[in-house]
């Protein structure tokens, strides 16, 4: 039994990075990076103090949301945001499908594959606001620029994730249906769609949610929606209206979340 032995065992938790030298170098680099960036921040404490004391009034306004004075333009902005979101998501879904098939490595010929991937990469790399700037310059202010923006960024998102889904299709199921002598549309409806549809609907609902949130920012650069109203409120330092707008947005996002969790449960 366990009599105390004289020898001592040593134990240390195994490290993630095995080599000790490597570990020290990595810690050192991380530390150096953090110190260096902190220095490069150039924080100006006086400006911050000034801003904080000046913004006390704004803070107070934030806790007194005013839904009434700008009620009409808030309402209008929200409706514009919602319509933009819905239209753009539908367009995005429709256009993303061919790109998704094009970007699925296992079924797409090489030139089409690279073309689809290029579109996806460009769409995903630029934040909505950057894309919105482009469309506003090209077709002018208003919700149409917003619709084009949201459509374009939905395409990359949906096509990429749907393509992954298509690449994961279980081909033995498809073969089985093919073996019954099914035609191409039958093959689609019985073997391919059932495998990718549930996930695709989930993604589309998720994208609807993202698009609504995005619709609130692209207004800042003139692409319509509640963001325009919000930006105007900030420009006029009307923090009570701004706060009201934010509250409405949060409420809508919450509702959307309930809706999407409802859909997801239905799909299961």
């Amino acid at each position: 039994m366990l009599t105390e032995r004289s020898e001592n065992y040593s134990w240390q938790r195994p490290h993630l990075i095995k080599s000790k030298n490597k570990r020290i170098i990595i810690y050192f680099l991380v530390l150096a990076y953090l110190i260096f960036t902190f220095i490069s921040l150039e924080i100006d404490p006086q400006r911050i103090l000034l801003g904080l004391s000046r913004s006390q009034k704004y803070f107070a306004d934030f806790f007194r949301p005013d839904f009434i004075s700008r009620g009409e333009s808030i309402m209008d902005g929200i409706i514009e945001s919602l319509t933009m979101t819905y239209v753009a998501t539908i367009f995005g879904i429709i256009i993303s499908i061919p790109f998704a098939f094009g970007a699925a490595e296992n079924i797409s010929p090489k030139p089409i594959y690279f073309l689809s991937r290029a579109v996806i990469v460009i769409s995903r790399s630029f934040q909505e606001v950057v894309i919105a700037i482009f469309f506003v310059v090209v077709i002018g202010f208003g919700p149409m620029a917003g619709v084009l923006t949201l459509t374009f960024s939905s395409i990359g998102f949906l096509a990429k994730l749907l393509a992954e889904e298509i690449e994961d299709i279980d081909w033995s199921q498809v073969e089985a249906v093919k073996a019954t002598g099914a035609s191409w549309p039958q093959l689609m409806t019985y073997a391919i769609l059932p495998q990718i549809l549930p996930r695709f609907i989930g993604l589309a609902v998720y994208r609807l949610d993202i698009n609504f949130r995005a619709s609130a920012v692209i207004g800042v650069v003139g692409a319509g929606g509640i963001g325009t109203t919000l930006n105007a409120a900030f420009d006029r330092y009307e923090f009570d209206s701004a706060s009201a707008i934010l509250i409405v947005m949060i409420a809508i996002v919450l509702l959307g979340e309930l809706f999407s969790s409802f859909i997801r449960k239905k799909l299961k």
């Binding site: 913004s55 949130r213 995005a214 609130a216 919000l230 934010l246």
Partner: peptide, 14 residues
């Protein structure tokens, strides 16, 4: 619910 750009607008004012 609030995008970084909107947080940024508020924070730049402050």
């Amino acid at each position: 619910s609030v995008s970084s750009l909107i947080w940024a607008i508020i924070l730049v004012i402050i």
